[in-house]
Amino acid sequence: MADKLKLEMVTPYKRVLSEEVDELTAPGFVGELGILPGHTPLLTTLKVGELTYKKGNEVFHIAVNWGYLEVEEDTVTVLVDTAETADEIDLARAKAALGRAEDALKTLPLEDKKYMIMEAALQRALIRIQVADKGH
């Protein structure tokens, strides 16, 4: 059994990552999940959140948006709509989006269709800010 995981991350626009990593934490649909080499085959959907991976002593954070994660024989394939590393995130923009979403959520009625959309936007903004903070 290999003592490393092969991590592949792709979005519709590009291949984001293809690296050997030691461990990985992903925002699974039913909760945070950690993956180490030798993990049993798994297929899960991901929600908006922060994906963290460790390479040696270095830790990397990536903000991901809805996707899939598959583990098979020490290869982890992550398919996501968007993936942003800390340097790619525009903190000011994320904060502005957060403000907008918060304001909208205060005024919108709960059953409004927009409520869900704004809530998702709020989530994304929060994760972005969280990831960006860790990167600096």
Partner: peptide, 15 residues
């Protein structure tokens, strides 16, 4: 050979 059972989260239908 992939008779190894996958774990599906939340479950296969949903995935």
């Amino acid at each position: 050979e992939g008779s190894v059972d996958y774990i599906y989260e939340p479950d296969r239908g949903e995935v």
